[in-house]
Design a protein around this nucleic acid. Structure first.
Lengths: 226, 226
DNA sequence: ACCTGAACACCGTTCAAGT
DNA sequence: ACCTGAACACCGTTCAAGT
């Protein structure tokens, strides 16, 4: 293997960038540092992302939000392997064949999406300015629309329910990320000025359970209006 | 007015920084550009934020999330004015005296908070990594806990409901910011692969109404469990 | 086609100096 | 106390050049 042709690829770059984000934070993701991690000169990245760091950010956001894409420590194919599409979905190969009840499908999507975002929470700022017209986003919305229609919603209530669900899941991840790293709910400043807060001081939140119960409540309420 | 003593202050810096963020985007907020806008050498900012840009980011996030703080085109006091505290709240001077029903108080907070975030949506990425232990955050949580307790919730259900509400509001803003700037829901790619999506194509979303109805549904569901 | 290496404009931050 | 000006290390990106 000579000095050139280091076996770079967009996928390898994205995965390495995510490793840096997860391990050191978004702010430390630098073209030069990324090059170092890939054992390559920083400028080599531009050959795979000619539009620069912004395009790389978009690709990272697309990767994180695409629940169907394999993620993380999946065995990295050696250079020279069969370059097949890499878009195989381990679960539910044909989404049209999913005949489970509507609420189960929605819960499934919500938990999978939440898990994905939590795993790469350092990349959350990249999702905000990403327009939701990617393949994966359209697929998710189609799933949501179908499920809510099956639940009995019609007209504008369908996209409205999907928006509420999407909002809740994203917001719950943001909420959890902000809460983590804090000790108990605010050690100081719970003197006497926040009486209701003091009544629940010291209770460590169970984010998984909180998310599940909030999700159940929201889904029940959204379809009750039908 | 000589070359020194340009009348800088943390508040003036934060407001100017927000103007840049709102007008040109977070990425273009630069210490040097900020200095230019303030008619000051960039390094003067460090006298008011000795810990640098990170501390400035935190201050911006605190400003945006503090519903009680006056925001935007509030008349800027001339240098030499009476330097009073600047924390006067135009509405509801004493929050303890708020005897409206619990759901009205929650809806009020939710709408005010949403409005604030939407107005400075460019600063959203700064909120994610901001720990929620600021004055304003504690005040908001105390309000939420009190309202949900009054609605009949007890024990862990109270912080759980507050978390769900906070998640929904934040997520709804993120959802809207992502959706804006898109034409109708995805012009291309609605060929035949996303049938449920196609059924609702061309319907422009009414974000205000979507938010309101989703909020109503969520609140109703959260207290129904009591 | 794929990667290197030097270069340029710009950035955050430090520090000594001015008033 | 408050601000300036030069300096340093680092960054994103361009471009000509190598293979």
């Amino acid at each position: 293997m000579s000095r050139n042709n280091a076996g770079l690829s967009a996928d390898r770059i994205i995965n390495e960038a995510l490793r840096i984000i997860d391990g050191q934070g978004l702010r430390r993701l630098t073209m030069r540092r990324l090059g170092d991690a890939l054992q390559v000169e920083a400028m080599a990245v531009y050959h795979h992302f000619p539009l620069g760091k912004e395009a790389l950010f978009d690709a990272i956001a697309d990767h994180v939000t695409d629940v169907a894409r394999p993620d993380g420590d999946a065995p990295r194919p050696l250079p020279g392997d069969d370059p097949d599409d890499g878009a195989d979905d381990p679960e539910g190969a044909d989404p049209a064949a999913d005949d489970r009840p509507w609420d189960e499908r929605l819960r499934d999507w919500a938990h999978a999406y939440r898990t994905r975002l939590l795993r790469h929470s350092g990349a959350l700022p990249l999702l905000i300015n990403r327009r939701p017209d990617t393949e994966a986003a359209l697929r998710a919305r189609d799933l949501q629309y179908g499920a809510f229609a099956e639940a009995g919603l019609t007209g504008a209530a369908v996209p409205r329910a999907a928006a509420a669900l999407d909002s809740y899941v994203t917001g719950a991840v943001v909420h959890q990320v902000r809460a983590e790293g804090l000790p108990s709910p605010a050690p100081a400043a719970v003197d006497g000025r926040f009486p209701h807060l003091a009544a629940h001081a010291g209770a460590a939140p169970d984010h998984d359970r909180d998310f599940r119960e909030g999700l159940d409540a929201l889904l029940a309420a959204l379809v009750r209006a039908a």
